[in-house]
Design a protein around this nucleic acid. Sequence first.
DNA 1: CCTACCGATCGGTAGG
DNA 2: CCTACCGATCGGTAGG
Lengths: 189, 189
Amino acid sequence: MTRHSREDIIEAAGRLFAERGYDGTSMRDLGKELGLLGSSIYSHISGKQELLVAVVDQGAELFQASVERAMQAEGSSRDRLTTFVAGHVDVVLDHGEVSRTFLNEARSLEPKYRKPILAARDRYEAGLRTILSDGSGDGSFRADLNPTVAGIFVLSVLNAIDRWYRSDGALDRAALVAALSAFISDGIS
Amino acid sequence: MTRHSREDIIEAAGRLFAERGYDGTSMRDLGKELGLLGSSIYSHISGKQELLVAVVDQGAELFQASVERAMQAEGSSRDRLTTFVAGHVDVVLDHGEVSRTFLNEARSLEPKYRKPILAARDRYEAGLRTILSDGSGDGSFRADLNPTVAGIFVLSVLNAIDRWYRSDGALDRAALVAALSAFISDGIS
DNA sequence: CCTACCGATCGGTAGG
DNA sequence: CCTACCGATCGGTAGG
């Protein structure tokens, strides 16, 4: 007779956290979203923080799997960068609520849960830095590239996608990846 | 005998809103920051929302003044873009709490206050688009540049600065502007 | 700017 | 999963 699974609840939580923020989402809001009382949620989970941890962990896993695929991709460093960009776009477009919560709500994690998430972000960035650094060495990119700073800039552009991109707009997914890759590679010149 | 001015209170509010978010900041938190009771703040302002409006309005004005200076700058479109980037950096570094609140907490504005803020952002973006479009026409930038998409990418990089830049790090302000300008102009190639 | 509150809402629990 | 709560905290007010 259980009407909702743990997964249902985590998914709905991700939706509300992405829209209203963790602090802006009450357990009663979440209950309403699911069609039950806020207090009833506690038969499935032990606390609100657990929901945030679950959503953010999903985000960490998605991005981690994506960067690993990019680093193992065939071809040049430039190809691996393209794979990285396309993989990031896939995560953001296919798991928008999870990735928004991952990117914007980590500050609401209690310290013990926040630390491994920051570490996961560092690994993601480190993968990108490796691609950039390799490409700088083998002539794919500028020889004087600073991989740390360039990595930050690339992620700045990628992490902002959910703030403006709408799938019903002028750019489809392939055009988005192409526009991103062009800007990252050549800027506006 | 008034110990705090309205400006003091708005400044402290901006600090806490930037750090903890609007929903994560209580009037009692703000009182503690100022050395008085939460209820005492109401002798200076009429509500919490008014504080957010005041902070966000400051942000809108700062960015608006900056884009106007950039558009009136002497020289080529490329010079105006450099001025735009440097001006944005100045706002973010000199008014970090205000700009973070402006960028991240606008969703907590009640609809009637949110609308003019979104309009202010649109004007800021429109100024940038004009610079990009002019530069695409006069040969400063690529002829096939899409000013809308390029503008979004440029602002993505600029709006992320406060998420990573620390003034005690390896880059000083001039080096930051130079790195941003190089990435925006030429990407990583 | 404080004292002394108000009703509403918060995350969460006991018991069924 | 609901009923019926709990103590804590929220934004805010009356009166001084």
